[in-house]
Amino acid sequence: MLSMLLGFEETERLLRKHGIASAKSHYCRTPDEVMQKSALLPKPWVLKVAGEGVFHKTEKKLIALDLHEFEQLYKAARRLEKNALEAGLKNKKWGFVLQSELKGTEFIVGGKTDAVFGKTVLFGSGGVTVELFKDVSIRICPLARKDALEMIAETKASAYFTSEGFRGRKADKAKIVELLLQTSRLLEKESGVESLDFNPVIADAQNTRVVDAKITVEGK
């Protein structure tokens, strides 16, 4: 059985359905459309390629960060387009996602179907180094609030949720707990969902938002 990566719209729909807060994103087909939509979002921007078969965005240079000027943005769009084609992405099955760059600390919230225990939820330090530091904690669905709190406490990332934070950075524990519980519900209700990555989830003392969501479903 193959797993299929959900497209941008379907992913957004699932997040909305389960009340999961995500970064405001615009899906664009062409570099010109990217330029039009950029007026709707404050700078700096982040531009990434999204669509069927888009994995490992960092390695394949399918993401551009810290874009402050229109010219920079346009060049990035053209570069990403070229890289996408080089990475073998077929026409029409992919597009650009434009977001404002968010400040805060990166976490990962994930889900996976385990052969023995069924649906599981994961929490940990996020970003591009998740697999390097493996600072993660896992629980079986359905998640209780107590489970979510223990998951946070088990990771080194928990330092950000203390009253003093870590090196001036803080994140809102209640919001991450809520996100973990929402993720547990999503996994349980959407039986076809096989695994998911919300990575990064960017959080500060006020907001906690899923910036990049990848959801795979069981293929036919």
């Binding site: 996976k112 385990d114 990555d197 795979t216």
Partner: peptide
């Protein structure tokens, strides 16, 4: 396909 699937191995 996902980081989670690779991090959440059987033992984890």
């Amino acid at each position: 396909a996902t980081h989670t699937a690779s991090l959440a191995g059987d033992d984890a």
